[in-house]
Structures are given as structure tokens and as C-alpha cells.
Design a binder for these strands. Structure first.
Lengths: 143, 143
DNA sequence: CCGTATCCACTGCGATACTG
DNA sequence: CAGTATCGCAGTGGATACGG
């Protein structure tokens, strides 16, 4: 086995202790990464979009459904349930007829917007670079 | 149709313009959300873990494989290809025998670590709250 | 050692239909 | 209106085997 390159070197990033990286010789399990389930939420197909919509204030089910083109009723329900379970949104049923259900971001949900928007800003800033990289890679792969 | 609640209100978050939210009446398409493909990378099963490992310096394929418990060779390859395509990592082949391939974060990849670590910090800070919310929700669902 | 190819189980998710 | 139930497909990802 070839010697591992020295750890600290130009451009190395300081990782906070709580973001799991393997100590030498001990493989990391994915479950060790506590943020994995958070990242899964963030990364899934609709959650961020829903959270960003709710950041504008409470919305009812049908409003969200209409606002998000292409989402199925089933997926909207499932996503909202997941967000509710994680404590990100509250679900309020008005006992009217026809029924009306409002969804609203909790304090926790609102606090999530900060890092997510930071990521969005990063994406916005670097999207041209990423698209150039993709185009270059694809061109090289084709040729 | 019931009147939409007023937009600016207590706890409303300011969303930057480039993070797409629907203007009144126009449903948003998921493709409008430019950060969607970024979020998909962030959210997929292994990418963040790989990026965090590479944040410690360049690593060779087999090193990464050993470091991440449970990842298949196939998935490691696919993830690294995806990251390479997006311009996040470079792939360097040493024409030795046996062959050796090093992966290293690009400047772009390193810059991504900032927002990701911010998200990790958020997750670390709020994980207890989330777990409490989940437990409460599950208990209510069961009872 | 590093990667690709093939096969297959699983599941995410859309479509549709049906209830309170 | 706001769900739930069921079905079916397409994509994801693991296991295995093989090639450079």
C-alpha cells in the first residue's frame, strides 16, 4: 500500500468534528453521519420548493398544489407529512365544509431557510462554472 | 377561492430573487429552480460524504472505498464521475502498474464545502429538536 | 488496482380512483 | 377540499463477474 499523502496541505478544508470523517483505518458508516437524514430531506424532489413557498407565509394545501407545477397530490401530501414529522411545518385543520388545511413553517422550519438560502446563493454564483464543467466533460466523453 | 393571507407577516423569510418562487397565479416548474440539480447532488446517498473526505486532501480510489463503509465500487465510481462532471473533483491517473487514480477537490469543490458545512452545523444544532419532533409525531400517530 | 457490464431487487413516484 | 388506496413503471443501487 502506497503511503497516504500528508493530511494538511494547500487547500485543505477544516471539517468540524461533528461532521463525521473516518479516523485513520476506521471506515465510516453512512449512519454515523447525523446530517444524512437532513440532507436526504433537502435533496429530495420537492421539499425545498415547498419550504421556500411556505417561507412566504402560511399556505393551504390546494394553494401549494397549484403553485408547484407537476407535483402530484400524493407527493405533496407525503412531503408535507415528512416536513411535519420533522417539525418543520405545522398542519392546521379548519373544521369547515369543505375542509381547509393550512400549512405553516415552524421556527425550526424558518431557521432551516438560512443555510438553504446560503446553498442557493452558492449555486446561483457557481452555476455557470458548473455548466461549463459539465459541457466540457460531456464533450470530452463524446469525442 | 379564499383570499390568500397577506405575504409579509410575522416570521416571513426574505427569499432572494434567484430562488424561484411562483408569482401569483403562475405555477412554478421544478426545472425553474436552478439549484435543483445542485440539491440533488447534495442529497444523494454518498456525494457529501465523499466531498468531506476529499476535503482532507487528495485520496486514491481504494482509499475512499475503504474509508466509506458499505459503498459499492460501482456507486463510488458513479458518484466520483458525477462530481468530476460537475467540476467538483479532478481525476488523475498514474500510469503505474498496478494503476493508481487520485481524486482531489477542485477550487469549486472546496468552495462547496462552505455552505455544506453550514448546513451540517445547522443539522448538528437542531438534531435534538428534530428527533423530539419525530418521536412526538410517531407517538401521536400510534396512539 | 481501477473500472465496466450485467443482472436483479427495491422503491420513488405518477396516474387513477375512491372517501369524509 | 383534502386526503387515502392501489397499481405499475422507471430509475437507483447492490452483488457479482469480468477486462485493462
Amino acid at each position: 500500500m502506497l503511503p497516504r499523502p500528508p493530511r494538511p496541505q494547500g487547500g485543505t478544508i477544516l471539517i468540524p468534528d461533528h461532521i463525521a470523517v473516518p479516523v485513520d483505518g476506521k471506515p465510516i458508516q453512512r449512519e454515523d453521519c447525523k446530517i444524512a437524514s437532513i440532507l436526504a430531506r433537502i435533496g429530495d424532489k420537492w421539499s425545498v420548493l415547498i419550504v421556500m413557498l411556505l417561507a412566504g407565509g402560511p399556505r393551504r394545501f390546494s394553494e401549494l398544489k397549484r403553485s408547484i407545477d407537476g407535483i402530484s397530490q400524493r407527493m405533496l401530501t407525503l412531503n408535507l407529512r415528512g416536513l411535519e414529522r420533522d417539525g418543520m411545518v405545522t398542519r392546521t385543520v379548519f373544521p369547515t365544509n369543505p375542509p381547509r388545511v393550512d400549512y405553516e413553517l415552524t421556527a425550526l422550519g424558518r431557521s432551516l431557510c438560512g443555510p438553504v438560502i446560503a446553498l442557493g446563493n452558492w449555486a446561483e454564483e457557481h452555476l455557470p462554472e458548473i455548466e461549463r464543467a459539465r459541457a466540457g466533460f460531456d464533450a470530452r466523453a463524446a469525442g
